[in-house]
């Protein structure tokens, strides 16, 4: 599978859909089954329920911390001796739901943790990963810091802007891309490193930029559709490196409208059995 991914872009270091995110459908992520199961009875959960997913299916008007998100928020809060410790993870959660963190979201988080909205705003604006305004479906962050810069980071950045037809920090006309410069992404041995939503693309050269954008354009409509409730058996879902294409995306009752909060119902959570066991999840072989 790594070979296939490698040849897609002819890039030996292509990280693509690395790791263990690729086989998860949107429903997996939206639900609370995957994230932060509470291991031994009654203990504080140890694992994360706070990965900063950047999903394509976002709703800037959605209400925060309802349904499965309520569950996740409570799990997160249970792990800190003081409630304020949950501030960063809850902001992440808000961003996952809405795609960005605006003043209203900050106020909601503040209320959740009994802090003042001004204080939360002061914290949220300190960190660069909270988008203070909406971004495109794919947030493309090109590392132009010294190690990547030596190997052409600036040129890759310019190429992304050109290919996406946008200015730095703006949303492209079709709503698909926002391209920004990033500070060191911690992949200096694989220049140029590019982070697109949660994915890392490594050893990116200017020549590969159009192909990457093309791949993202192909993924876009697929990833935007809500995943079906009846997920395939675990074996069939091991399409590692590929995006899950729902068999019947338009199943009745599954349409997501602005008036129905798609995250509210716990019934959208896939059964735990649908998740492949941990040991045989696809992994990213050493293409990094």
């Amino acid at each position: 599978m790594s070979e296939q991914k490698t040849t897609v872009l002819g890039n030996p270091g292509f990280a693509g859909e690395t790791g263990d995110f690729s086989h998860l459908s949107e429903a997996d992520i939206r639900g609370s089954a995957y994230v932060g199961r509470r291991p031994p009875e009654g203990r504080e959960a140890g694992a994360a329920a706070s990965y900063p997913y950047q999903l394509l299916q976002k709703d800037p008007a959605a209400r925060l911390f309802e349904g499965p998100y309520r569950e996740r928020a409570e799990k997160i809060k249970s792990r800190y001796p003081e409630p304020q410790g949950a501030l960063l993870p809850l902001l992440n959660l808000a961003q996952e739901i809405r795609g960005h963190v605006d003043a209203e979201a900050m106020a909601t988080v503040a209320e959740e943790l009994d802090l003042s909205p001004t204080y939360v705003r002061g914290v949220a604006t300190f960190y660069t990963m909270y988008n203070k305004q909406p971004v495109g479906d794919f947030l493309i962050q090109v590392c132009t810091n010294v190690a990547c810069n030596l190997c052409g980071g600036d040129e890759v950045m310019a190429e992304f802007l050109k290919a996406a037809g946008t200015e730095s920090g703006e949303i492209s006309f079709d709503g698909a891309f926002t391209v920004i410069e990033a500070e060191c992404l911690g992949a200096c041995g694989f220049p140029t490193a590019v982070q697109i939503n949660e994915r890392y693309f490594e050893n990116v050269t200017t020549a590969e930029v159009p192909a990457i954008l093309e791949q993202l354009r192909t993924e876009r409509p697929i990833r935007r559709k809500p995943a079906p409730v009846d997920v395939k058996p675990p074996e069939a879902r091991h399409g590692a490196g590929k995006v899950e294409v729902p068999d019947d995306p338009g199943a009745p009752g599954e349409t997501v409208g602005p008036e129905s909060n798609p995250y509210a119902g716990g019934d959208r959570t896939p059964p735990a059995a649908a998740r492949p066991p941990a040991s045989d999840r696809p992994s990213s072989e050493g293409q990094g």
Binding site: A15, D20, F21, G46, A47, A48, Y127, A182, R281
Partner: peptide
Amino acid sequence: GEFFEPAQIIGRAIEEVY
């Protein structure tokens, strides 16, 4: 926060050890 993939891998390992 940018280390999404490593975070997932560690997160899964934590679930395993629990």
